[in-house]
Design a protein around this nucleic acid. Structure first.
Length: 684
DNA sequence: GCGGATCAC
DNA sequence: TATGGTGATCCGC
């Protein structure tokens, strides 16, 4: 047979499933899920959000059809037995990587935000409540019984549970408690990885060995300590690698632990019936894609290894096989600042089409981003604008520079420029993100000529500022919806995020937007394929001639789930072992390090710095122009007179979280060959 | 380098 | 009554 049959009923079913939200595959929902899903779908029906979900669902269904056709074509031309034979050899090779010598623990705080709120307001006990404003970050266990979940909009949650209470987020409180708990974990493994506010990985092998302690007992004690010291409960998984440990921590949640024996057969049994959706990195889309070729559990992977091999690009054969075997990385190490790849800010508001209003929003975002970049010590070379139409379709436009961008004026001007060709638009979200980062706190030469021009007493200023790690460690909670960054926790108590009514109609924003020193900024943004055509009409709105670039091969982008990246890790490990400095660890980090360092060439006349000499020279030419000179004089005058207009920027707000993100994803499937060595070292 | 997509939390 | 924010990665251009 050649195609699946996209019967209307099936399409509806997958749409209903989709509308139920991404965290559906999780635990705990008691009530009849079908009924819940129907309520959600009914509440959404007819909205623009709904229409967008419908469109995406249709696209996915079509994509699946193409994949199945491709599979059938491929199967015609090959001897599947031979293919399977080759895969089996690969399996044997991968099996060699298995390392059962380490005891890896993943701990996950139970309904973290909700339980903290409970702690601080005992009157909530026993009641269904959610944490968050418009969209819930997490829900109490009582609320979950009704189908209320993280990421669910409040008005839908209320439909499911009319007596639902909602409480605001108190991020700094969560961070504070998180810090305390992480400190406990760190005593079991100094290299503990804080994966988010409420999650951590540890390697307790050494701790247990030195004390002749059973790992289960060790984790039991650890969890008890958390309860004693914070009155919060955590769940834990114990296994031979990070992926397995993470899956296991969900097994006896809440307030429980699960140990998957360090034993090949036990692991095989465990994987056999495990839903593919439990694998970190397999989300709703990949779940459907895999299901379409007959894979629902990790055990199914072996049956379909032939097809997976033929469609390696789509699914990532190695990754699938390693998953099937239950093999993943067991390397646990703290998050490193230099791993950060981007920093950005974005905001949703009531859809607007008025250009000035949109630019106003953009300006706010630019200011926020500058603030974040300065306070966390980053600058970067590429600016990406993101916007979401009121149809919920998302687009991004980027521009690269050969100088470092941090200032809100630059950010705003760039965003404005990128927005220019897109008009007209009706949008509900706007954001800016900066990539190709450079760490401004890393004292790396750079100074060069600049020293010459620096005012006598003055030194680069910032550079030394408070340390607190950058980034945030966005919460999690198996069911906690992340986000909600507080910019100035105090001052204004939480941003009154009433973007409401869009009244702020204040006046002239000094639109006086002078142009960027467009000088060397090469950018290819000018002649961009025509953008989306906002499609404000309720119609099917197949936007843009470009939104759907290639359809030739049929296979749309990413079906895959990452994989085969392990070569990187090998080289990373090599780099590490030969590296005197303990800090650089990943090849990527290393690359980036090399990449961004070679040049930090400051302009002697202004605050800009550049990536290479050409760029610098081009800039200097411009900088010497009359206007520039004048500008420089003004600034020099200001400097002399004493004050840099730079706001003092009290460093009090250090409270926020600690480090950034640890993308869960690739973390786990790093090569083991290297891990093994690491492990041995650690043992010794 | 750019843009779309998917995923985690 | 109106569906989030931050960051990462991968693919195909």
């Amino acid at each position: 047979m050649a195609t699946n049959t996209p019967a209307p009923s099936q399409e509806t079913a997958s749409l209903v499933q989709r509308l139920a939200g991404p965290s559906t595959g999780k635990a705990g929902l008691a009530k009849d899920q079908t009924e819940i899903n129907r309520i959600i779908a009914d509440a959404s029906k007819g909205s623009k959000f709904y229409e967008n979900e419908k469109r995406k669902d249709k696209d996915l269904t079509e994509r699946i059809s193409r994949i199945l056709r491709q599979r059938d074509d491929a199967l015609k031309d090959v001897d599947i037995v031979k293919v399977e034979y080759k895969v089996d050899r690969l399996l044997a090779e991968l099996e060699e990587e298995r390392d059962l010598s380490q005891y890896i623990v993943h701990v996950d705080m139970d309904a973290f935000y909700a339980n903290v709120e409970l702690l601080d307001d005992p009157s909530l006990a026993g009641k269904p409540f959610g944490v968050g404003h418009g969209v819930l970050s997490t829900a109490s266990y009582e609320a979950r019984k009704y189908g209320v979940r993280s990421g669910m909009p409040g008005f839908i949650a209320k439909k499911l549970c009319p007596e639902l209470i909602t409480v605001p987020i108190h991020m700094s409180r969560y961070s504070e408690l998180s810090k305390n708990i992480m400190a406990i974990f760190r005593q079991y493994d100094e290299n503990m990885l804080a994966a988010s506010v409420d999650e951590a990985y540890m390697n307790i092998t050494r701790y247990c060995t030195e004390r002749n302690l059973d790992p289960d007992e060790c984790v039991q004690q650890m969890r008890q300590r958390v309860v004693d010291e914070t009155h919060l409960t955590v769940s834990a998984g114990i296994a031979a690698n990070k992926m397995l440990a993470k899956i296991c921590s969900d097994k006896n949640k809440p307030n429980g632990q699960y140990h998957l024996p360090h034993n090949r057969d036990a692991i095989k049994d465990f994987m056999r019936d495990l839903s593919i959706r439990k694998i970190p990195g397999v989300g709703r889309v990949n779940e459907r894609l895999l299901e379409s070729i007959g894979i629902k559990t990790c055990g199914d992977i072996h049956k379909h290894r032939g097809v997976l091999s033929l469609m390696d690009k789509q699914f990532g054969l190695r990754f699938m096989l390693r998953t099937h075997l239950g093999i993943a990385s067991n390397l646990v190490q703290p998050w490193l600042r230099e791993k950060r790849k981007s920093i950005g800010s974005e905001r949703t508001f009531n859809a607007v089409s008025n250009k000035d209003k949109i630019l106003e929003k953009l300006e706010e975002i630019a200011a926020e981003l500058e603030e974040d970049m300065e306070s966390s010590g980053w600058t970067g070379r590429t600016v990406t604008l993101k916007y979401k139409l009121d149809t919920y379709q998302v687009f991004t436009r980027a521009k690269s520079f050969d100088r470092w961008i941090t200032k809100k004026e630059d950010l705003f001007a760039t965003g404005k420029e990128l927005l220019q060709p897109e008009w007209p638009l009706r949008i509900r979200l706007i954001g800016l993100r900066v990539t190709k980062l450079k760490d401004t706190r890393k004292k790396d030469d750079g100074q060069g000529i600049k020293r010459f021009f620096e005012p006598v007493g003055g030194s680069p200023s910032k550079r030394q500022k408070t340390h607190h790690d950058d980034g945030r460690e966005d919460d999690g909670d198996d069911d906690t919806m992340p986000g909600f960054h507080e910019h100035e926790p105090d001052l204004e108590f939480t941003e009154l995020q009433e973007e409401h009514g869009g009244w702020d109609g204040d006046e002239a924003e000094a639109e006086a937007e002078d142009d960027l020193p467009t000088i060397a900024a090469v950018s290819n943004t000018t002649n961009r394929p025509r953008p989306p055509v906002s499609a404000p009409l309720a119609s099917p709105s197949r936007p843009s001639s470009r939104a759907k670039p290639h359809s030739s091969t049929g296979l749309k982008p990413t079906a895959r789930t990452s994989a085969a990246k392990w070569q990187d890790d090998i080289s990373a490990e090599a780099g590490l072992s030969s590296e005197p400095s303990p800090r650089i660890s990943t090849s990527k980090a290393l690359d980036e390090h090399m990449d961004s360092v070679p040049s930090d060439l400051p302009c002697p006349l202004c605050a800009c710095s550049f990536v290479d000499n050409n760029a610098l020279n081009a800039h200097i030419d411009w900088c010497l122009s009359r206007e520039a000179i004048r500008a420089a004089q003004v600034e020099a005058g200001e400097r002399k007179t004493g004050m840099n207009k730079k706001k003092p920027k009290m460093d009090k707000e250090t409270n926020i979280v600690s480090h950034g993100v640890s993308d869960g994803r690739t973390e786990w499937w790093k090569a083991q060959t290297s891990d093994k060595e690491k492990s041995r070292k650690r043992k010794a």
